[in-house]
Simulated assay, not measured.
Amino acid sequence: MRRVLLCGVLLVASCGWAGADEGEDDRPPGAPTGVTAEAGSATSVHVMWNTVTSAARIAGYEVYRGHRKVEDVPGSAHMADVTGLRASTVYVFTVRARDAEGRLGPGSREVRATTPAAVAADRSAPTRPGRTTGRTVGSRAVQLSWSPSTDNRAVVSYDVYQGSVKIHSVGGGQTATVVTGLRPGSRYAFTVRARDAADNVSPDGAAVRLTTAPGADDGRDTAPGDFRATTHRADGAYYVDLSWIPPRVDGVVTEYGIELDGRPATSLVWGGTAPRERASHSFYAGRDSGVEHRVRIRARLPDGTWGAFSVERTVTTGDTVRP
């Protein structure tokens, strides 16, 4: 099989020959990707990021507000609530990973969040979220949805709990989410609470009890959707053009793995803002026409695990995609 070097054109990508060894260095961890920040109330912001993969175990993450460290969470977490903030204020956050050797990686890109205005003498909590439902997504994820709460002012966010532990927050206009990083064949109970700008919290919505599928995860709902592959010719050479829809998960997918002809080829890592709708990428495939390739792609989920592969497409240089 002809080996093809895959490199990001518009992406900051990790490029290498198929089969090359990775992760065998002594460098500190990389910068967290997929960092987002969203106000949870007039005095709090929820910060979330993708789990960093490293040759050494990640021992923790440090969250910074400007240049000041405000949160320190264990390596198993990829989210934190920053509290004690001022209303109607813009805040800038970054996140750094720390490995088991104590080495601190570089800061992530900056993200901004604006806390809403405070509401004087607001003691009225939102109503409980209604009609909470859920379904398993393979063996390592669940999808939750609920009916919106009401408030005398406005619902600013929804907090998702796994048992008694808060595991995530979403904006007040969002009524569905995907929870990843679960264990196969395990039973979980999830509840949702609504929060307003004054930090009044609703009663729990109805508990949703779900059991993840046993064994290996086929993860079909974590696979990139509507995956397409074609070829084109430019300057006497052929290129394979890929496009797909990122899987719908909590957080931002910034890394994808490409498999070419049944072997891992490379990872694509977005250095800027990763697409949330259709994504695309092209790579060099040589100068000969009539060469057949099989290609598929998968996403690294925000919890650090790999999602399922897309459908496999077969392309021939000088030809178009075969369904």
Rank of each mutant, 00 (worst) to 15 (best):
V165W: 11
A189L: 03
A42W: 02
G257F: 08
G257W: 04
D204H: 08
Y256E: 01
A121N: 13
A299I: 10
T175F: 04
S267Y: 15
P302Q: 01
G205V: 09
S139L: 00
M79F: 12
Q162K: 15
L11W: 09
V111I: 03
K69R: 14
R195F: 06
S14H: 08
S282H: 11
Y256G: 02
Y161K: 00
Y284G: 08
P184K: 02
P214I: 06
A121E: 13
R322W: 07
S124P: 06
V45L: 12
S14L: 11
L144W: 05
R135V: 10
T231A: 07
L210N: 06
T180A: 15
V142T: 08
G205P: 08
R263W: 12
R140G: 02
R57E: 15
T254I: 02
T83K: 09
L260M: 13
S282A: 14
A223S: 14
A97F: 00
D319E: 15
V240F: 06
A18Q: 11
A189W: 00
V45F: 13
G107P: 08
D196W: 00
R228P: 00
G171Q: 07
G163S: 10
T222F: 02
P28Q: 03
V249L: 13
R313Y: 01
R294Q: 10
F190T: 00
V179K: 04
R112L: 12
G271E: 04
W244L: 11
T51N: 03
R103A: 11
T89I: 05
H67M: 06
R300W: 08
T132Q: 12
T266K: 01
G84C: 06
Q143L: 12
P129A: 01
R135I: 09
Y61C: 04
G215Q: 07
A223I: 10
Y91N: 04
V249S: 03
P148R: 09
P264A: 10
